[in-house]
Nucleic acid binder design. Structure first.
Lengths: 105, 105
DNA sequence: AACATGTGCAACCCTGAGGTTGCACTAAGG
DNA sequence: CCTTAGTGCAACCTCAGGGTTGCACATGTT
């Protein structure tokens, strides 16, 4: 599974998108803190953060006894570019097909 | 669930991404035809196409006894723009936080 | 030292998504 | 009219993903 795939999978989950919102809002936060803002357990949060980390959408660092997470906008920006490219490729395809159809009739 | 969410969910599935590839490649295809190119049943394909349709990533039209599907690049392009916006918003947040931290120290 | 807070790990539960099979229905072609 | 190819519907199966609980471990505080 390449990175774009991982990003898409990561973003497909409502809770994970909420987590990203919270992180973007706060700049940095621990799993325990985040758990207080959402209707799920800390453990669930941790799992989600792991998925987000695999997708490169968040990074973490240890600060004493807690682990702080933050967003990584570059990855999201990259994913956006990838999707954009894909869209352009489709458009080109469709344009070509349309053109051929018109010529051939 | 708004449209971007639906798009993300739709794209999170490998088989659906393959379907989109095939459609982009062929310009137009029916569920039965697509099923021949993938290791799953026509029914599975139909379900996936329904999800893609809900997300606005494909459109369909009846042609005699078959239903032909095609990609809709605008939606994907829109999704790409939305993600890009989100990334920018995060970047702005992080920049602000960083600035405040420097000023306040 | 004792306590509180945050994390890590593992087992477990359960729903939904992806997939299949079977059959009825409809349209095209001989 | 009969056959063939494509679709639609519904019941069913299976498993990974999201979630929980319980407990051990580590760090900070008094």
């Amino acid at each position: 599974m390449n990175l774009l795939d991982a990003v898409l999978v990561a973003l497909a989950e409502p809770t994970r998108r909420q987590l990203l919102d919270l992180l973007a809002e706060r700049g940095e936060a621990s799993a325990s803190t985040l758990a207080q803002a959402l209707p799920v357990t800390r453990q669930a949060i941790v799992k989600h953060l792991a998925v987000l980390d695999d997708a490169g959408l968040v990074s973490s660092r240890r600060a004493g006894r807690e682990v702080r997470y933050r967003t990584r906008p570059e990855r999201l920006a990259q994913a956006a570019r990838d999707l954009s490219e894909l869209a352009t490729a489709w458009e080109t395809r469709l344009a070509t097909i349309k053109r051929l159809a018109e010529e051939g009739d």
